[in-house]
Design a protein around this nucleic acid. Structure first.
Lengths: 238, 238
DNA sequence: AATCATTTGTGATTTACATCACGGGAACCT
DNA sequence: AGGTTCCCGTGATGTAAATCACAAATGATT
């Protein structure tokens, strides 16, 4: 059983650059201050763990910087990655509001800074601020939406190539597109991609090689260029 | 594209036998009345559709009676069933709070009675009643939890037998157990089971036959008895 | 530079399962 | 009773992809 990495730097939540854009944007000034009072910030190195699946929920983490891998794994060590979280996202929200255990494990894969709010403080805050509670509900709805989407790529595909194509397209959806081409910085290893689409490491490398041969993608260092989005979409619907 | 079945019987929400037990239990009397005012009830026959994935969310349905199949399907007709909803559950909640489209399709598989609350009314109600909003957040958290659980059975299994065993055990978790045996009324066809665990109809019948041969389960009409829960759990961890 | 660890690339082998195909029941009309 | 339509059982076949087993490459660390 891993233990979460300890707090390192404590500072004011208001300093977080993503504060306004996300979950609690546009709340009354007073609410924001109340929130700041119960928030503590910390930095985590690569490899640290925010929480582990099965642990009783301690509270939520608001990611300011870095990237976090959310995964679940079975007894025999097989791992399924659900999502790579980006700055601005709130982690551990479902478990914290329901009072159950974290259903996923959150590992830092890029040095991160995050604000933490303890469960009790958070729930009290929500009870006092009805609009924040509604905001939380919306956030949860979106999280659910993403989970279903992930579910579709894993559950509705006939082949691994279909899953990989789906994965690349969804991944690219966040990136800027120019002239039909999308450049995506692929910061995941083949192993991790395999764990996201539910297949083995070897088939991922083989499929990527195959996609390269078919001019569907192009690899330049650690960035991956989707050359032929249309054909990738064709693979998805096959 | 299917169209949802129309309303049939309109009556007061307060009549629903599951009202108190679930989502909005223990709300102040005043809130309950406000809720009742915006709720309409209707009966739906088997085969009717509450909503279809991709439709803009119209509102939520609170299931009073009957059972509903929640599924998603791909362009080529492959279907993945996420969940069979029981009375007391709220359907369409994530999409309604986020304002996106329904991410799943809800089909009636047993004649049902449900209360409907239109999206605008519902959101206004939540804005007025902070504690209800919190309750909704919790409900969403649980829904998420179930989705992750479903994800695990599909994504973390090495074989179809593992998935089926996982499915049977989770299904049995709701049923009363006596002397190590669990009797479950299997109201699903093999096809539907296949769609829940992401495999084909034929392998489900073959696997069930296999389980019967190995004395793991016993079939009496449409009820299925888990004779050997321990061995089923062994299959899961293989 | 030299050692180590991690990640990627590829071949050979095997097997689980989807798919096709078809026959028999059960249930449900009318 | 006879016809539909759905659901279940089973055989034969092909194939995609997991698995095993190395080798090459890349990148860290000293």
């Amino acid at each position: 059983m891993r233990t979460p990495y300890g707090l390192e730097i404590i500072e004011n939540c208001l300093a977080c650059p993503h504060r306004e854009e996300r979950l609690f944007c546009n709340l009354p000034e007073q609410s924001v201050r109340a929130l700041a009072a119960i928030t503590s910030s910390a930095a985590y190195p690569k490899g640290a763990t925010l929480f582990v699946e099965g642990q009783p929920a301690r509270g939520v983490f608001i990611l300011c910087n870095g990237r976090v891998k959310l995964s679940t794994s079975s007894a025999d060590g097989k791992t399924l990655i659900l999502r790579i979280s980006e700055p601005g996202e709130v982690l551990g929200l479902p478990a914290t509001v329901t009072g159950k255990s974290y259903e996923l494990t959150a590992d830092i894969i890029e040095p991160a800074q995050a604000n933490f709010i303890a469960r009790n403080d958070f729930l009290n805050f929500l009870r006092e601020n009805g609009d924040a509670a509604l905001r939380v509900a919306q956030q949860l709805g979106e999280t659910y939406h993403l989970a279903i989407s992930e579910m579709r790529t894993i559950g509705l595909s006939h082949s691994a190539s279909e899953k990989l194509a789906r994965f690349l397209l969804e991944w690219a959806a966040n990136c800027p597109e120019e002239k039909g081409q999308v450049r995506i910085k692929m910061t995941l290893t083949h192993e991790e991609i395999a764990q996201m689409i539910g297949s083995s490491r070897e088939t991922v490398t083989r499929l990527l090689a195959d996609f390269r041969r078919k001019q569907l993608v192009q690899v330049v260092g650690s960035t991956l260029i989707l050359r032929n989005k249309a054909d990738l979409e064709a693979i998805v619907n096959s």
